[in-house]
Nucleic acid binder design. Structure first.
Lengths: 209, 209
DNA sequence: AATAATATTGAACGATGTTCAAGGTTCCTG
DNA sequence: CAGGAACCTTGAACATCGTTCAATATTATT
């Protein structure tokens, strides 16, 4: 039982790695089972012994991408001055840089859509939540009055806003923005958002509108 | 020459409308030429007389979606109190509402990717720029010191940030957010961004970092 | 060593976008 | 109005996918 499973696991790892490289080079749409099979040296049909379908394969690659992204954000959180505000700026810029350096893999995280009715497996869903936690800690330091639920919501909003800037900024479809300009814009708007949130906090929440 | 062209134009319009409905119902991936042909009553191959390929078809549908979106944003700009800040909030909420009510068509605007090498035709690129102009006017009122180029950049950043919140907020992939909560978050963050931008403006631009 | 369990293969299937020769329509011209 | 040129429509055929499966080869167990 060992020999077979060992080989199977080796091939599985090779398959996922080949898929990762193929997505990085040719985009999500360029991922072809026949090319993958040739790459790892097995028959086309054998792919389905290692993985249920391409959906799973894409999710497995996505899991690795999320892991690397997580590392990059962790690195950004701890490096540099420790003011929460500047930590958040560094995290946002790290997100931007990661997306730029891993453009196709990063895009694959959001482009991929399961066919309706098929639900995303647990191990894949779990990964995605982790991203917010980097933002959560500095936010908690900035807004000690807010409840964990409120902080979670604010964290997701901030993350989403930065994600949007990165997504549209790196898109060829709209006007291409040079990366340094994009980084500057992101840093500026993150600082503005934080300052604005703090000001609104002091002033008394929603009473001002 | 009139009879043939007339029929052609009628069929073309029917094709685009059928494509729009099909995307709205089944998503971008559910768009199939054979189904479209059956829908409008012609042969599968005839579709390629009306349209160069499905890429063009998708772009044509996208053009219509952008037009309707533009109308919705125009409506939001003029309705309600005329303070630029609240105009921007209304525009952001209108964008959110439009995306929620036209989820699949709105997604198609961003999901669709041309195969590499094929470039987007002019008439399609032109449409997309128009969206920023709704944001531009209130922004110009809020920041009279800024140059048109700076305003354009800020407008795109603001738009992108809101887009990100809407995109991730409406995504099933991450935790589903109830629409009213999302609207509240968007309104709050837009106000915070504007307040923060104004504060940074007063304080002396980038000198503070 | 024989037999059971499992893995691998590559041909085949069903979709799908796209093309194309054949045959029909429509339009212009004399 | 007749006849030919230009154009349109058709549906079969092609290439390319993901996926399946009976047959074969390999591995594990007794």
């Amino acid at each position: 039982m060992t020999k077979a499973l060992e080989r199977r696991e080796k091939l599985r790892a090779a398959l996922i790695q080949a898929a990762e490289q193929m997505i990085a080079e040719r985009g999500l749409a360029g991922l072809k089972t026949r090319d993958l099979a040739r790459e790892i040296g097995c028959a086309n049909g054998a792919v389905y012994n290692l993985v249920a379908d391409v959906d799973e394969l894409i999710l497995r690659v996505g899991s690795r991408t999320l892991l690397r992204l997580d590392e990059a954000l962790t690195l950004a959180t701890n490096a540099g001055e420790s003011s929460p505000r500047e930590s958040l700026v560094r995290i946002a810029l790290a997100y931007c840089d990661f997306a730029a350096e891993n453009l196709q893999l990063w895009r694959a995280l959001f482009e991929h859509r399961m066919e309706t009715g098929k639900l995303v497996p647990d191990w894949s869903v779990h990964d995605q939540m982790q991203l917010f936690r980097h933002i959560y800690q500095p936010l908690a330091a900035l807004f000690p009055e807010r409840s964990p639920e409120e902080l979670g919501i604010t964290a997701r909003s901030l993350f989403s806003a930065v994600h949007g800037m990165v997504a549209l900024g790196l898109e060829q479809k709209l006007v291409a923005v040079p990366l340094p300009a994009l980084r500057k814009e992101i840093a500026g708007l993150v600082r503005a958002m934080i300052d604005g949130l703090i000001a609104r906090d002091v002033k008394g929440a929603a009473a001002a509108d």
